[in-house]
């Protein structure tokens, strides 16, 4: 499996797109630091960009990679390799390569700005960790979609739809429900609704760490009230890991049964 991770990783690392992704973050990080002129402001802005953009890039890259590497996959399938090893390897290769672009692209400008000498280092670490977690989550969701759909157009369609649903529409519906049922106690409902969306979970994880109640929003406040800062952080990290593990498990199951 390590060999497959290596091949997939370098295959993607050599492509123009992953440089573009890296440069984009490098530019974004630098510009935000200059504009805000303080670390915590830049981190909050980046969080807002990250939770929309990272899922989109991971979903699109995941689906694209799967469809584009069909020949490579078929070649691997005829070798004495387990299917689960092939697909898990490809998954870690691509998610790892995307995560590297993200971590380096944001890490370099922040390190240059003097991150290591500030108290913000842990907040920045949480930003990167959620970014990496979202990359792994949405790549595995993308692999699930791509493996279940032979038709590329359909696969792409579902992937974009999933991103739209989790990153944009979900919050809208959530807010509508909160507004519509404001006379009722909604704490439990909002807690559960947040857990079912990795994008919301990551937002809350960062906000809990940054401890900015003004930006916390309803769910953030409920979360804090319910768990307290540290238990809330542990709980949401746990849920994020589940969001990686469950799709990964399902991906391996589909791969085992699929005909090539």
């Amino acid at each position: 499996m390590l060999k497959i991770i290596r091949y997939s990783f370098f295959d993607l690392a050599r492509s123009r797109w992953s440089y573009a992704y890296f440069l984009f973050y490098l530019l974004l990080g630098t510009v935000l630091l200059f504009l805000n002129n303080n670390l915590s402001g830049a981190i909050i802005t980046l969080m807002n960009v990250n939770i929309i953009l990272v899922p989109l890039i991971a979903t699109v890259f995941g689906v694209m990679y799967h469809y584009n590497s069909r020949e490579f996959t078929n070649l691997l399938l005829a070798q004495p390799l387990k299917r689960s090893a092939i697909f898990t390897g490809q998954y870690f290769g691509i998610a790892g390569s995307l995560s590297l672009s993200l971590v380096l692209g944001l890490g370099i400008p922040f390190a240059a700005y003097g991150l290591f000498r500030s108290a913000m280092i842990w907040n920045f670490a949480v930003l990167l960790i959620t970014g990496v977690a979202l990359t792994f989550i949405f790549t595995s969701l993308a692999f699930n979609i791509a493996l279940s759909n032979e038709n590329r157009i359909k696969g792409f369609g579902y992937a974009i739809l999933l991103w739209l649903l989790l990153a944009v529409v979900y919050d809208g519906i959530f807010l509508l429900l909160l507004a519509g049922f404001q006379e009722y106690p909604l704490e439990k409902f909002s807690l559960v609704a947040t857990v079912f969306n990795p994008v919301d979970l990551s937002r809350i994880l960062i906000l809990l760490k940054l401890d900015i109640s003004a930006l916390m929003g309803y769910t953030g406040a409920v979360f804090k009230q319910f768990f307290g800062t540290s238990a809330g952080g542990i709980f949401s990290s746990l849920m994020l890991s589940l969001w990686i593990l469950l799709p990964l498990w399902r991906m391996r199951r589909i791969a085992k049964k699929k005909d090539f």
Partner: peptide
């Protein structure tokens, strides 16, 4: 492909 395990 069945012999190769590519088709289940």
């Amino acid at each position: 492909k069945s012999i190769l395990g590519m088709v289940i």
